[in-house]
Design a protein around this nucleic acid. Sequence first.
DNA 1: TAGCCTAGAGAACGACCGTTCTCCGTTCAA
DNA 2: TTGAACGGAGAACGGTCGTTCTCTAGGCTA
Lengths: 173, 173
Amino acid sequence: MEHAERLLTAAGELFYRRGVRAVGMDEVRAASGVSLKRLYQCFPSKEALVVAYLERRDERWMASLTASATDVAGVFEWLERWFGEDDFRGCGFVNAYGELGATSEAVRDVVRRHKRRLRDFLRGLVDDEVLADQLLVLVDGATVTAMVDPERGAAAARAAGRAARVLTAACRA
Amino acid sequence: MEHAERLLTAAGELFYRRGVRAVGMDEVRAASGVSLKRLYQCFPSKEALVVAYLERRDERWMASLTASATDVAGVFEWLERWFGEDDFRGCGFVNAYGELGATSEAVRDVVRRHKRRLRDFLRGLVDDEVLADQLLVLVDGATVTAMVDPERGAAAARAAGRAARVLTAACRA
DNA sequence: TAGCCTAGAGAACGACCGTTCTCCGTTCAA
DNA sequence: TTGAACGGAGAACGGTCGTTCTCTAGGCTA
């Protein structure tokens, strides 16, 4: 079923760029070229579409990160490249949580799962619980700074990367 | 004019807890006890009310932080207390930016101003540009972690505080 | 050809949004 | 006592939302 794919591609771009509540189902239909009837056959509600969007985003985002970053320094180099993309608009999961976390339990869960997966990956890189927590904080913090002030995104990524190096060294000592 | 005060108190609680778009003007009216007519006399549009909410939140949040935290360790102790409050729901500015940053220039500006003020305050504590960037990243990152997974909020604050201590020491060396 | 199933286009529906307007009771000056 | 300004309650308005329904055209089977 390629319809779901087309829908998720269109919805993903729109939801990420403008926010979930700012995008109507009819706009997803127009951008995807899929009829409204089939849209609701693929995803029985907007919430289902949002959850699918987040799950797909999780898969792709994590796949890109894990394929490119094989050590701690690589994570922050990858972040700096991401922050520099012209359609970067912060963490799609944090944004979705801020919009819908108070309303939708399903959204809350998928965001939590994503952050847990990210932490697990970092944990695998450093093999220390507290350091993994600290790296997760650095990643999310740099992403927030880059979103609010895109011009300082690269600087934030590098500052966070330096912090990660110092913390990793301190942890080994 | 106490009406504006009542409106901002009600709107602030609702906007922060549930998100801006999830709260209608009529709900602000009901929660504040101020008539709709006067609401629009005080704030000529919802956007104006949102901007005023964020500006007030900036003032109070920064005042609480600066009054309580006189050094770097104090910042993260203050964060841990904040994360433990039962109505904590992450950074109101990041949430508002995720919802409205793509739409409203005024919201974008007030969020940027807030983050710049926060960075300036941190910069005053440590007197080093890169370290100030790193502390800002730690603060925002810990806030994201605490929002997404409230049970780990205290741990995130402490991990970030330990990271700040290590980074501060490394910077002085 | 005749009948039937599908699927798309988009109208329709009910709810709710931000915003404005109407009505009516009160207050207060003359 | 009259009348005019004010203010609150909430109806009204135009628009949009998520979701469902209708209509029509086309392709398949018999």
